[in-house]
Design a protein around this nucleic acid. Structure first.
Lengths: 253, 253
DNA sequence: TAACTAATATTGGCATTCCAATTATGAAGA
DNA sequence: TCTTCATAATTGGAATGCCAATATTAGTTA
């Protein structure tokens, strides 16, 4: 379990396992918070927080003075889905290759469709990225994602925007991607990537499709290089050598 | 508010309102738990539980000794957008525009990655298309779909293949698309499209990325023209004038 | 002046304690 | 024997206090 912090989540997941295993059925009452706390050797506070977690997932209802009652079981279907996503876990470099092809051309098309409001939004996102970087929030890529998706949105084509959202969804579902980032100790690359984003925005602002495409291509190329450096090429799942970059000749003719 | 009990949910919703209103933006830090508690006249415990609620919705991250940071905004804008994308029946021309951008570049990349087995498969699919055309099976587009997806598969990148399968899935889910095809009386266009496919395959066989890209672009352009001709531009859902073709200048530089 | 370090303050994590609602118990009365 | 009602026990709700991680500041030294 990666939650060294978030003790309540650990207990919450344990409780969910008990629900799944049928230890407590729907309609039944869970043991008192005090007993659960004792069983897991934590304070009642933590148990209460864990129960809140289950409550927010509509698995239990809590009745003051009465007890905690089971009203639902963890979604088996969903968890199987999650497993499926985990099973055919995409290699980061295969994903990057696809993104390099798709996103660079989306950037080019966006350059031809972009309007003032889009540029203002992109600037705001960039500023946000800058702030988060200064605050040292290096494990948060939400602004990064927002930037890329905002570019797709600038095409005014909802299919393209949906495609990109889908790609980022796949990224966040990738175990190896997380592992790679955890391995990174030198965080200077985030500044480099921010600089990449600025270059992309510059090209979009002047509606220069060709430059925008190349800037996006180069950005993803840089990301790839960084990930290559921190990768363990001995890992049997390592796919860095299987998926080469999209050739410049194909992207930029 | 129905939560006479569940005080934490009340506070949690208040906090979410503050996020929505922009009082705290993404990347910013919330006030210390103690201050929030004082502001709402509740104990820190309640505030902590409320924050757990936000944390489980991926709106904030909690860092011990540091603070609580905003990483997302309550689904309102985003979820509405998502729903729009999912619920709204995609207009055929919006989908075509996306395909024109994506597929032409996939074709170009496929040209650089294609191997003998792929070419054999594509030839077989083309032959199948030809037979079905002769047998007058004009409302069957399965071979058409196979051809396009087989090209994506030739890139050897499963993400790209999945992306294209997704696009065709969207196509078959589009009501307007069906309506359009039902309206077609002159079926000579299917021969023209088969000819387009042959041109694409020719370019792929000689690994000519640029020609493959342009052939795919032209093919989808022809499809668009045909659909335009049979469209009822008075239909309030008609989107033919909303989504122009991907400029040749962007696809073929 | 800049850089490093130690001391101090701030902040969330968790445990303990007391409070309030509900439920269980049992004695009294019909 | 059954019902009723007061009381005790049980259970979740919430406040407080102390601990540990992080951030900030002040002082020292080069």
């Amino acid at each position: 379990m990666l939650t060294v912090n978030r003790l309540y989540q650990e207990i919450g997941n344990e409780l969910k396992s008990l629900l799944k295993s049928g230890t407590y059925k729907i309609g039944e009452r869970l043991p008192p918070e005090r007993d659960i706390a004792e069983a897991f050797n934590v304070s009642r506070t933590v148990v209460r927080e864990a129960l809140i977690m289950l409550e927010l997932e509509n698995l239990v209802v809590v009745k003051k003075g009465s007890g905690v009652y089971v009203i639902g079981l963890p979604d088996e279907v969903l968890s199987e889905k999650d497993k499926k996503i985990e099973e055919d876990d995409l290699g980061p470099f295969e994903l990057l290759q696809a993104r390099q092809l798709i996103e660079s051309n989306i950037a080019a098309f966006a350059a031809s469709q972009i309007v003032k409001a889009d540029i203002i939004e992109l600037r705001a996102i960039l500023e946000q990225e800058r702030q988060m970087l200064e605050q040292g929030m290096l494990d948060d890529y939400s602004a990064d994602e927002m930037f890329h998706i905002a570019i797709a949105r600038a095409t005014k084509n909802s299919v393209l925007e949906g495609l990109l959202a889908d790609l980022w969804q796949k990224r966040s579902a990738s175990k190896m991607w997380d592992q790679l980032h955890n391995r990174i100790t030198d965080h200077s690359y985030r500044k480099k990537w921010l600089y990449d984003h600025e270059k992309i925005l510059q090209a979009l602002q002047v509606k220069d499709a060709k430059t925008a495409r190349h800037a996006m291509w180069q950005h993803l190329e840089n990301v790839k290089q960084t990930l290559m450096e921190v990768s363990d090429s001995e890992d049997p799942n390592f796919d860095g050598y299987l998926f080469e970059s999209i050739p410049v000749a194909i992207v930029n003719q």
